[in-house]
């Protein structure tokens, strides 16, 4: 595995697009939280008293940061889509195998990025939450609710597994990006709304929606009228199930099909 990581590092070390997209994905985490913090700080004093706590106070900060970041994880997916479709565009996926990688090793090389980017997103989020909690919060440090960042990690993991699957199936960069973003930003949302309207909570079980259900924004959640929901465990199992199915399809495709 170390050998694979070393080779992947050689592929991106001097690749400017990679570093620009990675920089953007990382910077947008604190930046978007700064924006949300600024908006929530303008909530009138009376309302804040009513809510009892601020979104960036410990322990709510974990949930707030996790929720805000879940909207920008598509940037990590774009980065992964670029790396994967590059291999197909340059036909280097073939050459890697011809030169002596097992097809499984090629899959591992891409799964390395899925994991590495998910961990990067998670670590940057933890640091962001700590910074906001200490700098903008008024409560003492508290780890309660830290598991929301765990849900966020799983959301990024699922987003990246779906991006990898899209890249492998579609192969062409432009089309893969359009299809992926179209699904994530519009098509799934439409399906969720439609399903929820006619069949109720089952709409919350679509792939990326499972993570959204696990990551509500803390204060607004309190203000909304009670929405019928499954237990968190149901969404969690569904989310893990989708990751497993995506991985199975990725392996099946790359191990069996002609490349």
């Amino acid at each position: 595995m170390l050998q694979i990581i070393k080779i992947e590092w050689l592929k991106v070390k001097t690749y400017r697009t990679f570093w620009i997209l990675l920089g953007l994905a990382v910077v947008i985490i604190p930046a978007s939280n700064l924006l949300v913090q600024d908006i929530t700080s303008r909530i009138p004093k009376q309302v804040q008293t009513l809510l009892g706590t601020s979104a960036y106070d410990f322990p709510l900060v974990w949930q707030s940061v996790a929720n805000v970041n879940s909207y920008t994880s598509a940037i990590f997916a774009l980065l992964l889509l670029t790396l994967v479709t590059n291999e197909f565009t340059f036909k280097t996926h073939r050459q890697n195998v011809i030169d002596g990688w097992d097809r499984k090793e090629f899959v591992y090389s891409k799964l390395f990025w899925v994991l590495a980017l998910s961990v990067t997103a998670f670590v940057v989020s933890v640091l962001t939450a700590l910074f906001f909690g200490f700098f903008y919060g008024t409560s003492a440090f508290n780890m309660e609710g830290f598991y929301y960042l765990g849900y966020y990690f799983l959301q990024v993991l699922l987003s990246l597994c779906l991006a990898l699957l899209t890249g492998i199936l579609v192969k062409r960069a432009g089309l893969a990006i359009v299809l992926y973003l179209g699904y994530v930003m519009i098509f799934e949302q439409l399906l969720v709304v439609t399903l929820k309207r006619f069949w109720g909570s089952v709409g919350g079980l679509l792939p990326l929606q499972t993570a959204d259900e696990l990551l509500p924004f803390p204060l607004i959640g309190k203000m909304l009228p009670g929405v019928q929901q499954y237990d968190n465990m149901v969404y969690l199992i569904a989310l893990l199930g989708y990751i497993a199915v995506a991985l199975w399809l990725i392996f099946r495709r790359l191990l069996k099909a002609d490349i």
Binding site: F90, T92, R94, Q95
Partner: peptide, 15 residues
């Protein structure tokens, strides 16, 4: 089949 953005030397490092 090589990485277009890498130099010949770096491509051969990958190989």
């Amino acid at each position: 089949n090589f990485y277009h953005y890498l130099s010949a030397y770096r491509n051969l490092q990958v190989v």
